[in-house]
């Protein structure tokens, strides 16, 4: 059975989708054009600010390297994000469900959040050298706290009477979690993911820039050495594409897993 009217609403919503993508793209193209014209009029040197034509051309020229290092960066983002989000959600659950856990763990989590984490990068380099660990650890640290806060809020917002319902059905702890708690908190968890995942791209790039021999951050370093400003901009384009793509992937997963949400 379907919602009446859902079928007929299909078509307009698809064309509206198209419009939603096309509009910002056109807007973007117009901005680039303006940029191009202005630079040409003002005669700005290439190494200070390259025109779009220059860095887009560089993007094409360097596509192989950009793709390779972009994928490496993405991989680190995913590892680090997962390594931070899973314990974040788990501790968020504990803190929401147990006063004791809240008293013991929350101050610790706040302390982790308070750390100026980028300054840990050199330390991590000393400990782990040119491995992937510094990137993963730092990304995980940045991801951890927002995920903890959002998922704790999600688990706390559950109507306590749902626990009555579960107990009267003799529900096991696992069933309660699987059928009631997790789906109730899922929207909050996803909103935490959406915000955090974009930030983690920056974190990985910064650590790569500080100490690594691969990834977009490493490419940044190389481009700076060569005073290759168009390449810097090309890297910027790739980096923000990764961020947008990850945020979109989170959205898509949410749509698939939580079809019940109003839109």
């Amino acid at each position: 059975m379907n919602i009446p009217g859902a079928q007929s609403a299909e078509c307009p919503s698809r064309s509206r989708n198209l419009q939603r993508i096309a509009e910002p793209l056109l807007w973007f193209a117009a901005l680039l054009l303006l940029w191009e014209v202005l630079l040409w009029l003002l005669d700005v040197p290439l190494f200070v600010l390259p025109p779009p034509s220059a860095f887009l051309w560089r993007l094409v020229e360097e596509q192989e390297r950009l793709l390779l290092h972009g994928l490496l960066t993405t991989k680190m983002v995913l590892y680090g994000f997962t390594a931070g989000a899973l314990p974040g959600v788990a501790l968020g659950y504990l803190i929401a469900r147990s006063r004791l856990a809240e008293r013991l763990l929350y101050p610790l989590a706040v302390f982790v959040q308070g750390l100026p984490k980028i300054t840990l990068a050199p330390l991590l380099l000393v400990w782990f050298g040119f491995t992937d660990l510094p990137k993963v650890i730092l990304t995980a640290l940045v991801t951890f706290f927002p995920m903890l806060v959002d998922s704790a809020a999600g688990f706390r917002s559950i109507d306590p009477r749902l626990y009555y319902l579960a107990r009267s059905a003799d529900a096991s702890r696992w069933h309660t979690f699987r059928h009631i708690e997790l789906p109730s908190a899922a929207p909050s968890i996803f909103s935490g993911c959406r915000i955090t995942v974009v930030v983690t791209v920056t974190v990985v790039i910064v650590v790569e820039w500080l100490n690594s021999n691969n990834g977009l951050g490493y490419l940044v370093l190389r481009a700076m050495d060569a005073a290759d400003t168009p390449l810097l901009f090309a890297i910027l384009v790739v980096g923000s594409t990764i961020g947008v793509a990850l945020a979109y992937a989170v959205d898509l997963t949410e749509r698939l897993l939580l079809p019940w949400r109003r839109r």
């Binding site: 749902l162 319902l165 789906p183 109730s184 899922a186 939580l258 019940w260």
Partner: peptide, 9 residues
């Protein structure tokens, strides 16, 4: 329960 208490998901 008072006010239905359905699972919205």
């Amino acid at each position: 329960f008072q006010d239905h208490l359905l699972l919205e998901f």
